[in-house]
Every structure is written in C-alpha cells, then in structure tokens.
Write a protein that binds this DNA or RNA. Structure first.
Length: 477
RNA sequence: GGUCUCGUAGUAUAACGGUUAGUACAUCGGGUUUUCAUCCCGACAACGCGGGUUCGACUCCCGCCGAGAUCACCA
C-alpha cells in the first residue's frame, strides 16, 4: 500500500471537542496503516481568534488519545516550521508565482465598497461574486495589500473518497483572497501551499469545505501542481436537532472526558466507530485493531449523531476489559485521581476496586460508589425500616437478627468462602429469605443504595469494622 | 435565494437486485441466593413519499419532500 502522508491541521482557537477530533483520528489511522506519517500543523493565521494555550491543549488531547504525530511541534521534522505564522515567506514566494502567471492581483477595494456590492446583489437577488466587480486596472501588489486569486470560471469534476464523484458549474468560482492585508495567507491558500510542500497525500477534513473545492482546484491548476486525495468527513451531529455538534451545543472538550473518568481507549473506540464500521459486528476495537481495519471507503457519508450513553457503555466495557485481561493492577494505575478523600493504602484500594469495577461506567463513579469503604457511613435507620424487604419485619426482630449475625460472624474465618458459608448457615438458622437477611446486613454495613456481593463487601471491610458497624446499628434501632 | 451533500428502528449501523431486513446502545420483561451492576435469555422497534426499470428493488433511474453544509481579508 502506498504510504500515506496525512495531516491534522487545527487552528489554535480553543479546545478540541467531540465534533472535530475525528479529523485527527482518521488521518492518524490512515498514516499508521500504510506506514506513512501524520503531520500536525498549527493553522494560526487568524490572529484575532488566536487563543493562548490552545496549541498545548490540542497536543495534550492528541497525546491522551494516543495519536502521536510524526512531524510537527515538539517532534520537528523535515518540512517545518509547523506553525503557519512562521511560514510567511513560503506563502509569499508561492503567491508571487501566481502574480507572475497573471493569476493573482492586488485588491484595492475597501471592505466598505465590498459590503456595498454585496448589498446591491442581495437586493437584486443575484449571488454576490467578487469577480463581477473586479477592477480594470489593479496596482502592483506589495505587502499591506490583500491579494486575490483571478478566477477563470468553468466547470469542475473531481473525486471525493467519501462523497464520490463531484461536479459543479462555473458559478461557484470566485476571486478569493489569498493573502490578507496583514500579510498572512488565508486558510484557502495556506493549506494548499503547505500540503504541497509537505507532500501530503490525503486531505481529510470536514464536509464544510466541500463547497470551496472548485476554488481550491482552480488554485492547484494555476499553480501547476497535483492535488492530494480529498476525503470529506461528515459532521458529528448534536444529540438534539440536526445541527453539527459544536461548542454552542455544549460539545465538551475531549480532555474533559478524561477528567470525568473516561478511558482514552473507549473514547478512541467510540469516535472511530461513529460514522465508520468495517462491515462486521464487532463493537470493541483496540487502537491496533482500528489501524489494521480502518478503510476510507467505509466512512459513512451522512452525519452521525453523538450519543454519550453509548460512549459510557463502551467505557464500562473497556474498564472490564482492562481489569479482566491486564489485571486489577493495570486498571488501578488508571484510577489515581478518582478515589474519595482517603489515606487508605494502595493494597486496600485495589481490593475495593477488584470487587466494584464491574459496576463502573466511568472511573469517577469510584468517588460516589465506594465511600463506605473509606469512612464510617452515617447511620440512617429509615433505610432499613423502609426497605421493601424489611419494612414488614418488626424492629425488635431485626435487632435480634443482627445480634445473631454478629454472634455468627464473630466466630467466622474472614475470607470470602467462609463468609458465604456463614451467611448461608444464618439463612438456615433464621429461616429468613436471602432478600431479607442479606438486605439487612448489607445496609447495616454500608447504608448505600447498592454495593458488591455481601460476602465480598464484608471481606474487604474487615472483621472488626463489619461487626462494629452492625453493633452500632443494633444500638440505633 | 444560488451551489453542493445527505435520507434503514429513538441512536449508531449491516445489506452492495432475491433475507422472516441482521447487530449494538437505549427502552421493556425474565434469569444468575439482597441491592446496584456485570453476565445470560427474550420482547418492542426501521427501509422519507411517489413514479418508473426489472420476473423481482432498501439496493438502479427520475420527481417530490425533509434535513444539513456553504456562499468572510474564519478556518
């Protein structure tokens, strides 16, 4: 397979969210699959929208997801620099080729005049095209003036790897701005130059660029260069409505999910499979499997709706997968930031994790689901007295059952099997149903709405603490 | 408004002229000695509409309808 040179080229205007990270994932998978390279290029030509720290945030996001770039900031490479503001001279040099060929000209029109033209067109209900107002004699271009492309309207046909064969008429061609007044290029020009200089083979970007394609094609043509393959990625849609998912719809930063206890494996898995699938019924993919199976021609050509519920389901699957395949220790190393306030030992926390992990949807569930392992629960007798299995049993009888339990457990070896045996014997001795006796004991030691299997909970809690808690409940009833 | 794109259950998708239209999430029901969860079993639920082409259409063609994108010295 031909080695693909792909790129992720964000502008540093803020964080990367669910809606736009796919245009980093697919280039990564394509590059890795073919033994090629992914380039990270920072498109910082819009000074007004530049956000301090955004580049670091972008890098942070890619690293968390495991999308390492082969060329770009931090790692360098033979095609640098990788910040567009550091490449001004390159753009100017390419722009001069266009001027020399008579395909670009200095634009003397003021923004006010352009607005007037646009209004005029709106009133006449005809599309506004700058080329219809192109000045007769234009000054020689020099820095400080906007430079425009000189369009030669005609039909264009091209192939998009996702959308298929495309065709447009001459009416979409216009004299677009190549270099802005501030001397920096527009995206429209910069990305063409950079992709050419960097040897990019696949341009993978959102479908919003589809309607600009003819203008790009015209520039490639005027420059006399071949264009890369075009891969238009459909939008990810907001959960409600039919809009593309954006920050306004509450699209969270990708790294925010890390802080919420989502595993990068799950995030990558979910996002890669949103709008792509390999034709099989597999749901869980490792990064290596994605690299192996990914194919551009199976990218969906309609938008896909973001579904956080499924992401969280997948995260639960990944939590279990890591614990089951790599062991509790491996999962434990991921949980450092997610425990309740405690000075408990690693060993104790691991034992808690081992009995609770199959209940977790996110790692941050640990915070709320394990409190009674680390602190004395507040005794709330109503939880016992109003429990659906216990409310028909008089308080005195409950008290008696607990006393019997305490006596039995005091005489039991403290391991899961022995505890289970003891609990079964208690069941026989008291004649109670499991739902009754076990609910009582479970609530007595945890006062939590749910908890792991009773014998395991008791084992981890320890003999002394378990019995002490039950005694406290007897006293309170 | 011009141009372009898209249209299978609530959601994500499979099917590439012939299937009882498959799978997963969600929802509902059941099972695994308490709860919650895991796991297992089951149920509900879809080809936007209308014409063609064809022995036969989710699949090919046309029209309509619906949804989206884009028309910046933003990317």
């Amino acid at each position: 397979m031909e080695k693909a040179i792909t790129r992720f080229a964000p502008s540093p205007t803020g964080y990367i969210h669910i809606g736009n990270v796919r245009s980093a994932i697919y280039p990564y998978l394509t590059a890795k699959q073919t033994g090629g390279k992914m380039i990270l290029r920072i498109e910082d030509t819009d000074q007004a929208r530049y956000v301090e720290g955004a580049t670091e945030l972008i890098e942070d996001t890619l690293k968390w997801l495991g999308l390492d770039w082969d060329e770009g900031p931090e790692v360098g490479g033979e095609h640098g620099p990788y910040f567009q503001t550091e490449r001004r001279d390159i753009y100017i040099a390419w722009a001069k080729k266009l001027i020399a060929a008579g395909r670009a000209y200095a634009d003397p029109t003021t923004p006010e005049q352009i607005d007037a033209y646009r209004r005029e067109c709106n009133e006449k209900k005809v599309p506004f095209l700058y080329r219809n107002f192109r000045p007769e004699n234009t000054p020689e271009w020099e820095p400080g003036m906007p430079l425009r492309f000189k369009a030669e309207p005609k039909e264009y046909s091209w192939h998009d790897e996702v959308m298929g064969d495309m065709h447009t008429g001459p009416e979409v061609l216009d004299d677009i701005i190549l270099i802005k007044k501030d001397g920096l290029p527009t995206y429209n020009f910069a990305h063409i130059v950079d992709d050419a200089e960097m040897g990019v083979t696949h341009i993978m970007r959102g479908v919003e660029y589809l309607s600009s394609m003819p203008n790009y094609l015209a520039i490639y043509e005027a420059l006399g260069i071949n264009h890369p393959k075009f891969v238009s990625l459909p939008h990810i849609l907001a959960p409600q409505g039919n809009k593309k998912l954006g920050k306004r719809d509450g699209a969270k930063s990708v790294v925010e999910y890390r802080d919420d206890g989502v595993l990068p494996e799950a995030m990558l898995n979910y996002l890669a499979c949103l709008g792509w699938n390999d034709g099989t019924e597999q749901e869980i993919y490792t990064k290596d499997e994605l690299i192996e199976r990914f194919s551009i021609d199976k990218i969906q050509n309609s938008g896909a709706r973001y579904d956080e519920v499924k992401l969280l389901w997948l995260n639960g699957q990944w939590i279990r997968r890591i614990a089951d395949e790599q062991g509790i220790d491996a999962l434990y190393t991921r949980t450092a930031d997610f425990w309740p306030e405690t000075d408990a030992t690693d060993d104790y926390k691991k034992r808690v994790l081992a009995i609770i992990y199959d209940r977790l949807k996110t790692l941050s569930d640990l915070k709320t689901m394990t409190t009674y392992f680390f602190a004395e629960p507040e005794i709330d007798t109503s939880m016992i007295l109003e429990n659906k299995f216990l409310k028909k049993i008089p308080a005195d009888e409950l008290k008696g059952l607990l006393e019997q339990t305490i006596a039995k457990l005091s005489d039991t070896d403290w391991n899961a099997d022995a505890l289970q045996d003891a609990l079964n014997e208690l069941l026989a001795a008291t004649g109670k149903k499991p739902a009754e006796l076990f609910s009582l004991i479970r609530l007595g030691v945890s006062f939590a709405p749910f908890s792991p299997a009773l014998n395991l909970t008791l084992e981890v809690l320890g003999k002394e603490i378990s019995i002490k808690r039950l005694e406290n409940v007897v006293a309170a009833l």
